[in-house]
Structures are given as C-alpha cells and as structure tokens.
C-alpha cells in the first residue's frame, strides 16, 4: 500500500544506519569519514523527500504551474551540503596530518602508539 510512497524514507533509514554503522565499526579513519558522509547524505535525502508534493513539479515561476514542491528544504540542504563538504575536507585534512605524525590511519595502531611513552 504505502510502500512505493514511503520508498525514499526506507532508503533514508537504510543509508542512515549504514553510515552510522560504518562510523562506529570501522577502524580506518578515512572509512570513518566516508561513513559520516553516507550518514549525512541520508539526511539530505530525508529533507528532499519531505519537500515533495504529490503531483507537483519543480518550483519554477511559470504560467500553468500551480502545484509545486516546497523549495525551502532544497535551499536548506544546499547549505547542509556546504557544511558537509567543509566537515569532510577538515576531517580528511586531519587524517592526512595524523598519517604524517603517526604513520598510520588505523585506529588500533594509533591507540597502540599513543600508549607508548
């Protein structure tokens, strides 16, 4: 019944949990950032799906267009994407510097090296 209509929301849930799991379970710092990205993208999809209006088109000012999607979440997500890029860039920059000083990007090896005096 509602499955096709709620399909995107199921995708959101799956992506969110996948990303979250990768962040928690992965020991590789780069993969953690990837997981974080998937996690954030799920929220983008969530916002975009909720702005959809049944039978609506793109929100363009034009004759004959009366039903259109809510443009506000799109704009919000543009901002959130920018924030996401900044976070990813900073996260990866930190990983580069961690790799320079520790010589590894694996969490357990870093922990072992931190315990050395």
């Amino acid at each position: 019944m509602e499955l096709p209509g709620l399909f995107t929301y199921w995708i959101v849930v799956v992506l969110m949990m996948t990303g979250f799991y990768v962040v928690i379970a992965q020991g590789n710092l780069v993969k953690k950032v990837v997981g974080l990205n998937i996690f954030q993208v799920s929220v983008f999809v969530f916002y975009i799906s909720m702005s959809k209006v049944k039978g609506g088109t793109a929100p363009i000012l034009e004759d004959g267009i009366e039903v259109y999607a809510n443009p506000l979440p799109h704009v919000l997500i543009l901002t959130a994407i920018v924030v996401g890029i900044a976070t990813t860039a900073l996260g990866l920059a930190l990983v580069v510097r961690i790799r320079e000083t520790y010589g590894t990007v694996e969490e357990d090896e870093i922990n072992a090296r931190e315990r050395e005096p």
């Binding site: 962040v23 710092l29 974080l36 954030q40 929220v43 916002y47 900073l90 996260g91 930190l94 961690i98």
Partner: peptide
C-alpha cells in the same frame, strides 16, 4: 591533539546531524 580533534569531529558531526534530523 590531532586524534582528539578527529574524534571530536566525528562525534560533533553526528551530534549536529542528529540535530538537523530533529529540526527536519
């Protein structure tokens, strides 16, 4: 300091993302 900042980045981003899910 680098690993501390990285860990904070991961946790902080999860926190902020949870916040926008709630706002959404």
């Amino acid at each position: 300091a680098l690993t501390a900042a990285y860990r904070y980045l991961i946790m902080g981003t999860i926190g902020a993302t949870f916040y926008i899910i709630g706002v959404g």
